[in-house]
Structure formats: structure tokens, C-alpha cells
Design a binder for these strands. Structure first.
Length: 186
DNA sequence: TGCACGATGAAC
DNA sequence: TTCATCGTGCAC
């Protein structure tokens, strides 16, 4: 059972940049009705908290950003540009309001269509706002260690689409697996 | 109640 | 480079 390899709460209750890096290579799992969709995480971005001007939590606690302010190991799913969903995992202690955006995945099982981009991977994996706030230490939506431990070369880059965030725009908080062909942008 | 805009993706 | 499309947050 893949649930035996599921990440526990304490994995998420750590520094967000570290969680973003360690999520690379992990398997994102969505029990979508009778179908178990599995994909390997290959690209992430860290959003550190209210002091990070690129983070949604920088505008304070609002109905939308509520999951970010909640306990670690929960999903934060929101709609962007009126048509695309973005999937994040909440990190660090409750109230810290940090999260990791999953930007690209590589299909492993029951995932069809393109997955190189936050909106595309949500569509391919059947993730939408119904899953907002979902506990990732559960059976419907979770992240699990891959069957084999592998050595990865990780690339660090500035985050995508946050040019408005002043000095925070240039921080190296985007991470991806070097050479992977599912990366959203080089 | 109105309005500017976005952690995107696709077309041109 | 432009545009589709609409929820969110904040101004009025």
C-alpha cells in the first residue's frame, strides 16, 4: 500500500525552503473516486510567510488564504486568472502562513495530459478547490516517499510570476530536478 | 457595489 | 506579446 509511505505531519512542520527541496522526487497521490492518480513532483516554489511579499499571506488572513494560516500538512488550493487551479502544501507551525507551490509533476500512474505547470498538473490530476484545506495526512490527497531512494541534482532559481514582489522576486526559492523534461520553464 | 489584478496557459 | 476569465481584496 502506497499509504504506508505517506509523509507524516512532522515532514511539513519544518522550514519551508527545506520542505520545498525535499518534496522533489516525492509522489503526489490523489484518490479520485475509484482512480488512484500518482505523479512525481519535479518542481516546487517556497512561499515563506507574511514577510515574503510574493506570498498570498503577505496580505494578511483572508477567507482565501485561511489554509496558509492553519496547521502544516494541509492543502491550499486556489483559482488563479479565473480559470486555473494551483496546489500548495502548508508548511511550518500553525499561524506561520507559509506554503510550497507544486509547479510541475511527472506522470507515474493514471495521469493523462500535460503536467508541466501548476494549472496543468491540477487539471491532469483532478485537483480543484474542492480539495482546498484537505488534510494531506489522510487517504484522499497525500504525498508519499517514492519506492526507491534516488540521488537528485537540484537547481535553484527565482520564482515565476512574482516580479511585483520587490527584492523577494529575486530570491532563489524555486527548485527543480536538473534535466527533468517536465519542468514548466528553464 | 465596483473595480483592478493575478504564484497561468495558449494563441498569435 | 496579447488575451481569456473570474474570484479576491480593497477602495468607495
Amino acid at each position: 500500500m502506497i499509504t504506508a509511505r505517506r509523509l507524516r505531519r512532522r515532514f511539513y512542520d519544518r522550514e519551508t525552503g527545506l520542505v520545498a527541496r525535499e518534496l522533489l522526487g516525492m509522489h503526489l497521490v490523489h484518490r479520485d473516486g475509484d482512480i488512484l492518480r500518482v505523479a512525481r513532483i519535479v518542481e516546487t516554489e517556497a512561499y515563506l510567510g507574511p514577510h515574503d511579499l510574493a506570498a498570498h499571506s503577505a496580505r494578511g488572513l483572508t477567507p482565501r488564504t485561511q489554509p496558509m494560516f492553519g496547521p502544516p500538512g494541509h492543502a491550499y488550493v486556489y483559482l488563479i486568472y479565473g480559470m486555473h487551479h494551483c496546489f500548495n502544501v502548508v508548511t511550518e507551525a500553525e499561524g506561520h502562513a507559509a506554503a510550497v507551490l507544486v509547479r510541475a509533476v511527472e506522470p507515474v500512474a493514471n495521469v493523462a495530459g500535460r503536467t508541466a505547470g501548476p494549472g496543468l498538473l491540477c487539471r491532469a490530476m483532478g485537483i480543484d478547490r474542492r480539495l482546498n484545506g484537505r488534510d494531506l495526512v489522510g487517504d484522499e490527497l497525500f504525498i508519499a516517499r517514492p519506492p526507491r531512494r534516488e540521488r537528485l541534482v537540484i537547481v535553484r532559481r527565482p520564482r515565476i510570476g512574482v516580479d511585483y514582489a520587490g527584492t523577494w522576486a529575486s530570491r532563489l526559492l524555486r527548485f527543480y530536478i536538473k534535466g527533468n523534461r517536465f519542468i514548466s520553464r528553464l
